[in-house]
Design a protein around this nucleic acid. Structure first.
Length: 832
RNA sequence: GCCGGGAUGGCGGAAUUGGUAGACGCAAGGGACUUAAAAUCCCUCGCUCUGUAUGGAGCAUGCCGGUUCAAGUCCGGCUCCCGGCACCA
């Protein structure tokens, strides 16, 4: 006799839609709240991870509405991307068609989950009305020099004949076909995110509503290093080698230098020497091997170039090597090496018998002992001329100043953050709005010609970029001189699309600009963003960059897009993340079919707090289903009886055995107690949702409330019972909205439960006359006594003494002291 | 290696500022109802020892130590697990 979830859920989904209950208005006197979930990639079907993300969001959304916020709660689709194109290649279906079908499926599923989005604000990034503004922003960035083209090494999959994003390269292999990725130099478009490195770093401080780990990840990703750039002249040459170091205090200890294999100076220096061939072979070997096996390659390897550099501080001649452990991408691609104080240099020096010169000694120095490893800590300067004797930490600044004075180098800052490569040699993305003209050069497409539409006359063969084979797309006229010209065929990384979609939601139909400043100013920033941790750096960093860049274009007036961030955990089953290959996937559709959306949502939220991984349990789902049914039956029973009698034992299908009558007259102690618990539950549920999104404990206390409500021994008056039951249903409604709507109606209400105000609790009613005090002897629990709330410590002591069970522990013992925590604990410390 | 996070019954998880560890749910066992099963309802349920009229004692929050009347919570030292970064000079 379980309830008919399907009929009820469809009924109310239809009702909500027809009555436009989730439309978000524009400005209003209410306090605004912008609640956002990371929009999905329309891959075809919702998985449990999605369901979890949306269950969290929707519960919060419904809670906020009932608390009278002016809520913006939109949904959209991150619709460009590789899978659509792959489907096109495989099934000879147009990516747009495929994507639209996927969107429709997912939207249906989302509606079946009862999610309360304002569908009027739907944003689909693959639609021209959206990507037009992607292109428009690109041209603005181009004008400001924030979008630029340069030759760069890219990850190229030889099998799929395409460039891949960094994130699509897993352990050096293509994510689709596991082919080892090659490095290919190509002309690529970049966004100059590095211009904002400092601000992106500094403003992490402002993100107090973000999880600490995400902030740290971004911090490390940006990777700021303060240091010194120093020029080392090459002996018998007019060349200088520029290095970067964060350890100026070790400059006197430099005993060799090492180049990255790709460094342009390497071949220049050895040109014409007898070493040339040997070095060339070594360099080639490293360059080829590097990308692929860099992860495993820990063994230091190098080769002497036969050349020497001069340490500007000491005049020492130091040998120059090429090594496999130096990165071309960071710093200057050449390093000074101090084996005594850097472990990598130490290993290298040991291997190639290079001298090791100590310039910092431990404070508790054991002199003369040969080093067994590099000493990397703070210490006292030695062998460093005028800097001897001072603390190495102080030496960093002093030597830096000295180097600058002598013009050997200057202080610089380096970041690990690189510019954002946005070019993709792919069809299914936003075309980069650029035209190449022989006379005028690189010309952005003027606003009146936007959007540059994706052509339809293309074939998906899986080889190369279909756009470059579409002559109608490629050939065009120069917007400046009208001469025949060539159109850029690269499209944009999909992360570009997702870097400002949340601003588009504020003004989704705008056709003069990406969004109006006014609307964005009202709704932004996003008050609560919810999504997976996998975007900790990528999407969340790009969006921050976009916000700052758009601000500098005058399009908006705030610095950070997301005020609070909640990263939900994964959904796992049998210890693994749900995946097809593991065969542990639980289908969202099946859950809805079998138990209904309300139960599915309830379980997802009940099983664990949102930030933790959720272990799926079929039995656990059943438990929630039972709970929903129990309340349902209670409400049905109340109505069927139509008399003031409780329905406490539903022992058989229709046989309702009302064991005890409601108390009469009202306001018995049972009623008072229930009223207290009702208030307690309101408080607990409200705070749990608001504070930490602890939906699991909120649901637990609703269950407790139910247990109390149906407890046999308590006899309450009808009114109190009804108010309690109604409160329970309201409290449950954000979690399980459909069945609560239905029950609300069954109990005789005409207006949707969504329109109800969230109940308030009365602190006065939480108070009680009696309280249980735990009595401890020497910190050990020895008994409990129920006392009147007003009793003093003295009076409680009397109680204790009259309580035989407890008294026996203190009899004949000396009471050293007592600690009384009012209304909680009395701890008696005894001696002897 | 570095940086985060975590470890509580058979399981998922609760525990205000240090104040009765194990809420709530699942599983398990027993019982009621039933021709039977399912469903539902009731009872038990951290471990060990002990006792049997009711009970009592000890041990328990990864490990070792400390602070405190009192520690899952604070401090010091470990172990293991998960995540991120990884030759960043």
């Amino acid at each position: 006799m379980s309830y008919d979830s399907k009929t009820i859920e469809q009924k109310w989904q239809k009702y909500w839609e027809e009555n436009n209950l989730f439309r978000s208005g524009e400005k209003s006197d209410k306090k605004k709240f912008y609640l956002l979930e990371m929009f999905p990639y329309p891959s075809g079907k919702l998985h449990m991870g999605h369901a979890r993300n949306y269950a969290i969001g929707d519960t919060l959304a419904r809670f906020l509405r009932m608390n009278d916020y002016n809520l913006l709660y939109p949904m959209g689709y991150d619709a460009f991307g590789l899978p659509a194109e792959n489907a096109a290649i495989k099934n000879k279906i147009n990516p747009e068609k495929w994507t639209d079908e996927c969107i429709n499926t997912m939207k249906e599923q989302q509606k079946k989950l009862g999610l309360s989005y304002d569908w009027n604000r739907l944003v689909v990034t693959a639609k021209p009305e959206y990507y037009k503004w992607n292109q428009w922003i690109f041209t603005k960035f181009f004008e400001k020099g924030l979008a630029f083209k340069k030759q760069a090494p890219t990850n190229f999959c030889p099998k799929d004949q395409t460039v891949l994003a960094n994130e699509q390269v897993i352990d050096g292999k293509c994510w689709r076909c596991q082919t080892e990725v090659e490095v290919k130099d190509l002309e690529q478009w970049f966004y100059k995110i590095t211009d904002y490195a400092e601000e992106l770093l500094k403003d992490i401080e402002k993100l107090t509503g973000w999880p600490e780990r995400v902030r740290i990840m971004q911090h490390n990703w940006i990777g700021k290093s303060d240091g010194l750039s120093v020029n080392f002249p090459v002996k018998n040459s007019d060349k200088n080698i520029e290095i970067f170091t964060t350890r100026p205090d070790t400059l006197f200890g430099v005993t060799f230098m090492t180049f990255a294999a790709e460094h342009p100076l390497v071949m220049e220096l050895v040109k014409g020497t007898e070493k040339e061939k040997e070095i060339k072979d070594f360099v080639n070997k490293i360059v080829i091997q590097k990308r692929i096996t860099r992860l495993e390659e820990k063994e230091k390897e190098g080769i002497f170039t036969g050349k020497y550099a001069i340490n500007p501080l000491t005049g020492d001649e130091i040998p120059i090597y090429v090594g496999n452990f130096v990165l071309m991408e960071y710093g200057t691609g050449a390093i000074m090496c101090v084996p005594a104080h850097d472990q990598r240099d130490f290993e290298f020096a040991k291997k190639y018998n290079i001298p090791i010169k100590e310039v910092i000694q431990p404070f508790d120095s054991a002199q003369g002992k040969p080093l067994s490893a590099a000493f990397v800590e703070e210490g006292t300067m030695v062998n460093s001329q005028q800097f001897n004797g001072i603390n190495s930490k102080d030496a960093i600044a002093k030597i830096s100043v000295y180097i600058e004075e002598k013009k050997f180098g200057k202080r610089v800052i380096h970041y690990k953050l690189r510019d954002w490569l946005i070019s993709r040699q792919r069809y299914w993305g936003t075309p980069i709005p650029i035209i190449y003209c022989e006379k005028c050069g690189t010309v952005p497409v003027p606003e009146k010609d936007l959007p540059v539409l994706l052509p339809k006359d293309v074939e998906f063969t899986g080889e190369g970029n279909p756009l470059s084979k579409s002559s109608s797309f490629v050939s065009c006229k120069c917007p400046k001189c009208n001469a025949p010209a060539r159109r850029e065929t690269d499209t944009m990384d999909t992360f570009v699309d997702s870097s400002w979609y949340f601003e588009r939601y504020c003004d989704p139909k705008q056709d003069k600009l990406p969004f109006s400043k006014e609307k964005v100013s009202y709704w932004m920033p996003v008050n609560q963003y919810i999504g997976g941790i996998e975007h900790a750096v990528l999407h969340l960093l790009y969006s921050r960059f976009y916000t700052k860049a758009l601000r500098d274009l005058g399009l908006l007036n705030y610095d950070e897009p997301f005020q609070n961030l909640l990263c939900q955990g994964m959904v796992v089953k049998d210890g693994f993340k749900m995946s097809k290959s593991k065969g542990n996937v639980v289908s969202v559709d099946d859950m809805i079919d079998k138990y209904g959306a309300d139960t599915a949502r309830l379980f997802i939220l009940f099983a664990s707090p949102p930030e933790r991984d959720l272990e799926w349990s079929d039995e656990g789902v059943l438990g929630c289903y039972r709970f929903v049914n129990k309340i349902w039956n209670l409400v049905q029973g109340i109505q069927q009886l139509k008399i003031k009698k409780p329905v406490l034992n539903l022992s058989k299908d229709e046989k309702l055995s009302a064991t005890e009558p409601f108390a009469d007259p009202p306001n018995t102690s049972g009623g008072k107690n229930l009223e207290r618990i009702r208030n307690l539950t309101i408080k607990k549920v409200t705070i749990d949702i608001q504070k930490e999104f602890h939906f699991n404990t909120a649901i637990a206390s609703i269950m407790e409330f139910y247990n109390e409500l149906t407890a046999k021994q308590s006899s309450v008056d009808y009114e109190t019972f009804k108010i309690s039951l109604e409160t329970l249903i309201i409290l449950l409604s954000p979690f399980a909205p459909h069945i609560c709507e239905e029950m609300w109606q069954v109990l005789g209400h005409n207006e949707s439960i969504i329109k109800q105000n969230w109940p308030k609790w009365d602190e006065e009613k939480l108070k009680q006359n009696e309280v249980t005090i735990a009595v401890q002897i020497n910190g050990k629990l020895r008994g409990q006594i129920d006392v009147n709330i007003g009793l003093s410590e003295q009076e409680i002591m009397e109680f204790v003494k009259s309580n035989e069970k407890i008294h026996k522990y203190i009899i004949n013992k000396k009471i050293i002291k007592t600690i009384y925590v009012p209304q909680k604990i009395l701890n008696i410390v005894v001696g002897g």
